[in-house]
């Protein structure tokens, strides 16, 4: 099967300085594949080369070396361009246009007939919650509203694959939730999504696979479940309906105990402590709500890969 995105040995050098020219390597032999239908997280600190990769994929720059193919097509294939959508990192759009005019303009540029573009515009305005503001010029929009317009324009041609550069930036928690739901819906529709983000919890919640980039190099890539190492034998239990006496008993051997309105969240060293936890909970007429192995978080992994240290709690 043809991968949705195939990047081979992509390298980008920039020349800096006026008299004494120096070469700066922004991207160093990046290779990765994104399969059709995947949600792929592209991670890395600032200056890692994420935006450079997006710029190459979106025809803003030509790479110094290497190739990339989207949906099996070369980057300058215009027919392929009609099958993808792109949200730039900081969406600056024509601020003299209204949201409706802008989406319509994007629609006709994506080869949609005018009527189809108009119908799609109304659907998307409703989908991103901007129907009421559709007749306002974009210069009056807040950053969050612009981000929604950006998402809507990326979807105007009902693309097979979406490239989202920091789709969560500038959004409040509610907006982030909405984008997360939107990405989940798009995944259900079978669309491939390649996105970069700094908000690791969102990445963790949404991605099938991730790649971590640092100083232009790929440092880690793969399924989240594979690359997030299980941290020793630690377990996390959520219990409810227990009294203070039980909590005091649990504190005696738990690694960490956080009281919650219903009970507590307890981190245990190993399953040997589990039997004691169950006993104490049952004696207090409480309930074990959930039990999970403690995994390394994506944030831990990120810090480990970038700085070479695990962020141990």
């Amino acid at each position: 099967m043809i991968p949705a995105l195939a990047i081979e040995n992509l390298t980008q050098d920039y020349t800096t300085g006026f008299w004494r020219k120096r070469s700066l390597r922004a991207l160093d032999g990046l290779s990765l594949r994104v399969e059709a239908g995947e949600v792929f997280g592209f991670l890395g600190p600032n200056g890692a080369g994420k935006t450079t990769t997006f710029k190459i994929l979106m025809r803003m720059q030509r790479p110094t070396a290497g190739t990339a193919r989207i949906l099996g097509c070369a980057l300058d294939d215009l027919a392929m361009r009609a099958r993808i959508g792109y949200l730039p990192e900081q969406p600056y759009f024509y601020d003299y246009l209204t949201a409706r005019e802008f989406l319509l303009y994007c629609g006709v540029l994506c080869d949609l007939p005018k009527q189809a573009a108009a119908a799609r515009t109304e659907t998307l305005l409703a989908q991103v919650g901007l129907t009421e503001a559709a007749a306002q010029p974009l210069r009056k929009f807040s950053k969050g509203m612009l981000q929604r317009v950006g998402l809507a324009q990326a979807l105007i041609n009902d693309p097979e694959m979406l490239f989202l550069d920091e789709p969560m930036s500038g959004l409040d928690p509610l907006g982030r939730r909405e984008v997360r739901d939107l990405i989940a819906r798009l995944r259900q529709q079978g669309k491939t999504i390649f996105f970069s983000s700094h908000i690791l919890t969102d990445v963790e919640a949404m991605c099938d696979r991730v790649a971590i980039l640092h100083r232009g190099r790929l440092v880690e890539s793969g399924k989240l479940s594979d690359i997030l190492k299980a941290r020793s034998n630690e377990l996390e239990a959520v219990i409810s309906g227990v009294n203070e006496t039980a909590l005091a008993a649990l504190r005696g051997f738990a690694l960490e105990l956080q009281p919650t309105p219903q009970g507590a969240r307890v981190r245990l060293r190993s399953d040997r402590d589990l039997a004691r936890l169950v006993d104490i909970t049952q004696q207090a007429a409480g309930r074990v709500v959930s039990l999970n192995p403690v995994r390394e978080s994506l944030e831990d992994l990120f810090v480990r890969e970038i700085t070479g240290q695990v962020n141990d709690p």
Partner: peptide, 14 residues
């Protein structure tokens, strides 16, 4: 400068 070009070039426009 306003980075509106990125959006245009990502679309099927020569």
């Amino acid at each position: 400068e306003k980075r509106t070009l990125a959006n245009i070039l990502s679309k099927p426009v020569r």
